[in-house]
């Protein structure tokens, strides 16, 4: 190949690379915008929906207590996994719609984990539906929440509160 031909072919290759680069840039940036507008969370193409919805004063959530021995209740922090994971809230949001077998499997996992944490005298795990008002403060702390027993996990399986 002569130097002239070499130069022409490298210029052609350069032009092709630029065409590919332009196509990539267009598709890449369009994906970022479309995912946000359509609220598709296709990580790392996020929907950037960060704290965008207004919070309300009334909050609801779930809390678990392990019952050890006759009636001693211990806080069982399955809801407070590190780094803001919300597995517990997600599981509880569909819990009532899950099949009995699925609920039993989940409860068995929690009861086993509670027994590992609090000892063999752990009898059951009680799941409470919690409601509280964020602006109702007692000094530096929020007012005590209102707890309603929702589910009980024991060796016999899961039972819905009456």
């Amino acid at each position: 190949m002569t130097p002239v031909n070499e130069g022409t072919s490298s210029a052609r290759a350069g032009a092709a690379t630029q065409r590919h680069a332009r196509a990539f840039v267009g598709v890449f940036l369009a994906t970022i915008v479309v995912c946000a507008l359509a609220t598709w969370n296709l990580w790392p193409f996020s929907n950037w929906d960060l704290f965008s919805r207004l919070r309300t004063d009334r909050q609801t959530g779930w809390e678990a207590l392990a019952v050890v021995g006759a009636s001693r209740e211990r806080a069982y922090p399955i809801a407070s996994l590190p780094d803001g994971y919300r597995g517990f809230a997600l599981v509880m949001s569909d819990f009532a719609r899950d099949s009995v077998a699925q609920r039993d499997a989940v409860c068995e996992t929690w009861l086993r984990d509670a027994t590992r944490r609090f000892g063999l005298r752990t009898r059951r795990v009680s799941i409470f539906h919690v409601e509280w008002l964020l602006l109702d403060r007692r000094g530096n702390r929020e007012a005590p929440p209102h707890l309603t027993l929702a589910w009980t996990c024991s060796a016999k399986g899961v039972r819905e509160a009456a």
């Binding site: 890449f28 970022i32 969370n41 990580w43 790392p44 193409f45 996020s46 950037w48 960060l50 996994l81 780094d83 803001g84 994971y85 919300r86 597995g87 517990f88 809230a89 997600l90 599981v91």
Partner: peptide
């Protein structure tokens, strides 16, 4: 694990580029 964490998304987008 229940929540999509946005923290590293920008870094990953830049790495894709």
């Amino acid at each position: 694990a229940g929540r999509v964490i946005v923290g590293d998304a920008v870094l990953t987008l830049c790495l894709l580029v």
